[in-house]
């Protein structure tokens, strides 16, 4: 936390913010006309069906998030001595372009019963239960920083993936938004 006052305010808001550093992220972009092949191979490799709309899907510790038309972000654990992106690149060779983006972004996790109420004020997109359901993902910006956000399956929190080089600024903004809104919203 940046300072004790922010921490205290955050505690009162009942929200927790953590940073997920232990993840591998892979960008998967469809090659022209290979959707059926891609689906088959992704299903065989990850046990997932890639979503066509702004949703996330999860299976066996792996998550695939829609990341733009015909593009997805596959997120899974980063274990020592493994290279999930390289493995995926091999599996999807010829049907998708696969790029390791594990270090491109930093994921911040916000959890707490009031997360939706508090963050809805800070985001330019509508986070209301009816508009942004568990499993929904959006590519948007928060304050003036680009961010990809998805809502946890239990509806009690969000992950924010922001560009790594903006992470310090984004972390401050997130703390500030959560602490300020938690107390004064």
């Amino acid at each position: 936390m940046s300072n004790p006052a922010t921490e205290a305010a955050l505690n009162r808001s009942g929200l927790t913010i953590s940073r997920r550093d232990d993840v591998a992220m892979t960008h998967v972009a469809l090659r022209r006309g290979r959707r059926a092949d891609l689906d088959a191979r992704v299903s065989a490799t990850l046990g997932l069906t890639l979503p066509d709309t702004s949703r996330t899907v999860e299976a066996a510790g792996q998550m695939a998030a829609w990341a733009g038309p015909e593009q997805w972000l596959v997120i899974g654990p980063q274990e020592a001595g493994t290279d999930p992106s390289a493995a995926l690149a091999k599996a999807l060779n010829g049907v998708a372009s696969v790029v390791d983006v594990s270090d491109s972004r930093v994921i911040f996790r916000v959890r707490g019963a009031s997360a939706a109420d508090v963050l809805s004020l800070s985001m330019g997109i509508d986070l209301h239960d009816k508009a942004f359901k568990p499993g929904d993902v959006a590519i948007t910006h928060a304050s003036h920083l680009g961010v990809m956000v998805w809502r946890h399956a239990d509806g009690q929190g969000y992950d924010f993936a922001c560009a790594r080089t903006y992470a310090v600024d984004f972390g401050h903004w997130l703390e500030d938004a959560c602490s300020k809104r938690g107390v004064f919203a």
Partner: peptide, 12 residues
């Protein structure tokens, strides 16, 4: 054209 573009400034 069958081409895919992935911005990677922050990766490296």
């Amino acid at each position: 054209l069958d081409v895919q573009i992935v911005p990677s400034t922050d990766q490296w």
